Amino acid sequence: NRRVIAMPSVRKWAREKGVDIRLVQGTGKNGRVLKEDIDAFLAG
């Protein structure tokens, strides 16, 4: 159960899209999950 680094707005975006943010690979600094990462995860 790893800790995910993400801005609150990104966490909210993931929740709205029904995405478990822990499954998303972050591409930002220090592995931070970005809004673009959520979109890419949804795109496959």
Results as ranks from 00 to 15, higher is better:
Lys35His: 12
Arg3Pro: 11
Val10Ser: 03
Glu16Ile: 12
Ala6Val: 06
Gly18His: 08
Leu42Tyr: 07
Glu16Lys: 13
Leu34Ala: 04
Gly26Lys: 02
Pro8Glu: 11
Ala40Ser: 11
Gly18Cys: 15
Gly18Arg: 07
Asp20Val: 03
Ala43His: 09
Lys29Thr: 10
Leu34Ile: 08
Gly28Asp: 02
Ser9Val: 09
Arg15Lys: 15
Val10Gly: 02
Arg22Cys: 15
Gly18Ala: 05
Val4Ala: 06
Val4Glu: 05
Val10Asp: 03
Pro8Met: 08
Pro8Gln: 10
Trp13Val: 15
Asp20Ile: 04
Gly18Met: 07
Gln25Trp: 11
Arg32Pro: 01
Ala40Thr: 11
Gly28Val: 02
Leu34Met: 09
Val10His: 02
Arg32Gly: 06
Asp20Tyr: 04
Gly18Pro: 00
Arg15Phe: 13
Asp20Glu: 05
Arg32Gln: 13
Leu34Tyr: 06
Asn1Leu: 10
Ile21Phe: 03
Ala6Pro: 04
Asp37Thr: 01
Ile38Met: 02
Leu23Lys: 12
Asp20Gly: 02
Leu42Thr: 06
Met7Leu: 14
Asp39Ile: 11
Ile5Gln: 08
Phe41Pro: 01
Lys17Glu: 05
Gly28Phe: 00
Asp20Lys: 04
Arg2Gly: 10
Gly28Ser: 03
Val33His: 01
Asn30Trp: 11
Thr27Val: 01
Arg3Asp: 09
Arg11Gly: 03
Glu36Arg: 14
Ala6Tyr: 04
Glu16His: 09
Ile21Glu: 00
Leu42Met: 09
Arg22Glu: 08
Asp37Met: 02
Leu23Tyr: 11
Glu16Pro: 00
Glu16Thr: 11
Gly44Asn: 14
Leu23Ala: 09
Gly18Glu: 05
Trp13Lys: 15
Val33Ala: 02
Gly28Cys: 02
Arg3Trp: 07
Arg15Thr: 13
Thr27Tyr: 03
Gly26Tyr: 01
Val19Glu: 01
Leu23Cys: 15
Lys17His: 15
Ala14Cys: 07
Lys17Thr: 09
Gly18Asp: 06
Gly31Thr: 03
Arg32His: 07
Thr27Ile: 02
Arg3Lys: 13
Asn30Arg: 10
Ala6Asn: 03
Pro8Arg: 14
Arg32Ser: 10
Leu42Phe: 07
Phe41Arg: 03
Met7Lys: 15
Lys17Arg: 12
Lys29Asp: 10
Leu42Arg: 06
Ile21Cys: 02
Val19Trp: 01
Arg2Gln: 11
Gln25Gly: 07
Gly26Asn: 02
Lys29Tyr: 10
Asn30Cys: 14
Arg11Phe: 12
Ala6Trp: 04
Lys29Ile: 12
Ile38Gly: 00
Ala43Asp: 11
Gln25Glu: 11
Asp20Asn: 09
Ile5Gly: 04
Glu16Met: 13
Gly44Thr: 14
Gly26Thr: 03
Arg15Asp: 15
Ala43Thr: 11
Val33Lys: 03
Ser9Gly: 11
Lys35Thr: 05
Ala6Thr: 06
Val33Asp: 01
Gly31Ile: 01
Gly28Ala: 04
Arg2Leu: 11
Val10Ala: 06
Arg22Gln: 09
Gly28Lys: 02
Arg11Met: 09
Glu36Val: 12
Arg2Glu: 08
Lys35Gln: 06
Ala40Leu: 12
Gly44Arg: 14
Asn1Met: 10
Gly44Lys: 14
Asp37Asn: 04
Glu36Ile: 12
Arg11Glu: 09
Gly28Arg: 01
Met7Ile: 10
Val4Asp: 05
Ala14Phe: 03
Asn1Trp: 04
Arg2Thr: 11
Glu16Leu: 14
Ile38His: 00
Ile21Asp: 00
Gly31Asn: 07
Val19Pro: 00
Ala14Ser: 04
Arg11Pro: 13
Gly44Leu: 14
Lys12Ile: 08
Ala6Ile: 07
Trp13Glu: 15
Asp20Leu: 04
Arg22Leu: 09
Leu34Glu: 08
Ala43Gly: 09
Trp13Ser: 15
Val10Arg: 01
Ile38Gln: 01
Val33Ser: 01
Gly28Glu: 01
Ala6Glu: 03
Gly44Trp: 13
Arg11Tyr: 13
Asn1Thr: 12
Val10Glu: 06
Val10Ile: 07
Lys12Met: 08
Asp37Tyr: 02
Leu23Met: 13
Val33Tyr: 01
Asp20His: 04
Arg32Asp: 05
Leu23Ile: 10
Arg32Phe: 06
Gly18Asn: 09
Ser9Arg: 08
Phe41Gly: 02
Arg22Pro: 02
Glu16Cys: 15
Gly44Phe: 13
Phe41His: 07
Val19Lys: 01
Ala14Tyr: 03
Ile38Lys: 00
Asn1Asp: 12
Gly31Trp: 03
Gly26His: 03
Glu36Ala: 13
Arg3Gln: 12
Gly28His: 02
Arg11Val: 11
